[in-house]
Every structure is written in C-alpha cells, then in structure tokens.
C-alpha cells in the first residue's frame, strides 16, 4: 500500500544573508488512517514541516508525494485547489468568524471546496453532528465554550471530507478538560479511518497519537511507542 503522504529528502532553507535551514533533508511517510503527532520545541522546525505538509509552503528541495503524485512543484493556484479539496486545517486560535453562526463558519470551507450550494447546509450540519454539535448549528461563536469552538473548527475541516487533517497545536488554547474533549474526538476520527497529523509541543498530548515523530533542530526522528 502506497503512503498517503511521503516526503523524500525534503529540505527548507530560508534565504538570508546567512541562510537559515529550518528543515534538514527529511524522509517521512504517513499511511492513510495514521494518527501522527509531531513534537518539538518552538523553533525546532515542526511548524515548517506542517506548512510544507499543508501545502502552505514549498520545500527548497526534495519531493512531496501526496497520494503518489509530486505536489512540491505545483503552482500557487494548483496547491490552493488541493488545499481546498484534500486538506483540512485546525488551528490553535480556532479562527472562527465571530459574526457568523457555527453552521456558516463550516459552510465557508464548503464554498471554497466548490461544493454545490444546495448541498452545503446539509453537509455542514452533518460535519457538526459528527463532532457532537448537531444541536448547536445556529450558535454564534461567542456563545460557545473553548472546546466547542475548537470542535466547530474541526467540523469545518472535516466538512470537505479531507484526505488529511492537519492540526496545529489544537489544544494550545484549551484547559486540560476541554483539551481531552478534542483529543477524544481525534481518537474517534482516527478509529473511523481519518488520517490525522497533529503538531504539539506537549509530550502528554503527543502520547495520545498512534505514532510520534520528534523534530530537533530541523531533523525529524521517529519516536518508538515504548520510548
């Protein structure tokens, strides 16, 4: 079985007077259905890795195979289309639009996904139902708790039925109880076969994932489950 995501010798160097190597040549394979946690201190290069995986940044060299096709050299527009159709993002700061209902916040993703208008509301409601917010579709973000807001963000990411769910510090703004809420959700999505990549600096959160890699000074290392 081919990997859903495969990095072959991917390197990222930021041009400057003294170029900064954020990511040394890296090989990484993620199979469909994996739940991978990427850990590392701030400045270690884990964010760079996530940006490249999320097609928000381009590697300086190396190949990025998404479902077997090299996407590293695609144009801005083509990568944007891939983001809209195959990758769901969840952010630390939720990034919900404050004046729009939970349903509308999810629908925006479907709009960029070019989902037909008549299907959007139903699919958004379905996604909210999937994260346990089926009864709160009309709620405004300021009436939701932190955990609920992040679940709306997860629903927004899931609504487009992405191949890859990328979460950047998804529990960073949450207390431990609500963080647990989100992690439980991720565990369930993983059980349902959703591929999840999660960046976190917290080893305890990372431990919940099925697989872990650690980024240290731009080098990615696999962490054995028993380590």
């Amino acid at each position: 079985m081919t990997a859903l995501v495969e990095l072959r010798g991917v390197e990222r160097v930021y041009p400057a007077v003294r170029p900064v190597t954020a990511l040394r040549p890296t090989n990484l394979a993620v199979r469909s259905g994996d739940w991978l946690a990427i850990t590392g201190r701030s400045g270690s290069g884990k964010s760079t890795l996530l940006q490249i995986l999320g097609l928000l940044d381009r590697p300086t060299s190396g190949a990025y195979l998404l479902d077997g096709a090299d996407v590293a050299g695609l144009s801005d527009r083509e990568r944007t289309r891939l983001r809209a159709s195959r990758i769901g993002f969840v952010f630390q700061a939720f990034h919900l639009m404050p004046h729009r209902s939970a349903l509308d916040n999810v629908t925006v993703a479907l709009m960029y996904n070019r989902c037909p208008r008549r299907l959007r509301a139903a699919r958004a409601a379905e996604a909210l139902d999937r994260v346990g917010l089926g009864g709160r579709v009309g709620a405004m973000p300021n009436t939701l708790s932190g955990g609920e807001r992040q679940r709306v963000a997860v629903a927004r990411a899931l609504s487009i039925r992405p191949d890859l769910l990328l979460a950047d510090e998804p529990t960073g703004n949450l207390d431990s109880a609500t963080a647990e809420e989100v992690l439980t959700l991720f565990a369930r999505l993983h059980a349902e076969g959703q591929t999840v990549l999660m960046v976190t600096h917290d080893p305890q959160i990372a431990a919940r994932a099925a697989r872990r890699v650690q980024v240290v000074d731009g080098t990615v290392r696999e962490v054995r489950p028993d380590a």
Binding site: G54, L56, R77, T80, R81, F91, M97, V108, N113
Partner: peptide, 15 residues
C-alpha cells in the same frame, strides 16, 4: 486571521 483562514481553506490571493 480570517484572511489566513480563507487562504488555508482554498481561497486564492485573487479571491
């Protein structure tokens, strides 16, 4: 933040 979100969701610079 909203602009970044729209870009990550698949919005082009033009959109």
């Amino acid at each position: 933040g909203e602009i970044g979100l729209r870009r990550s969701l698949g919005g082009t610079r033009a959109s």
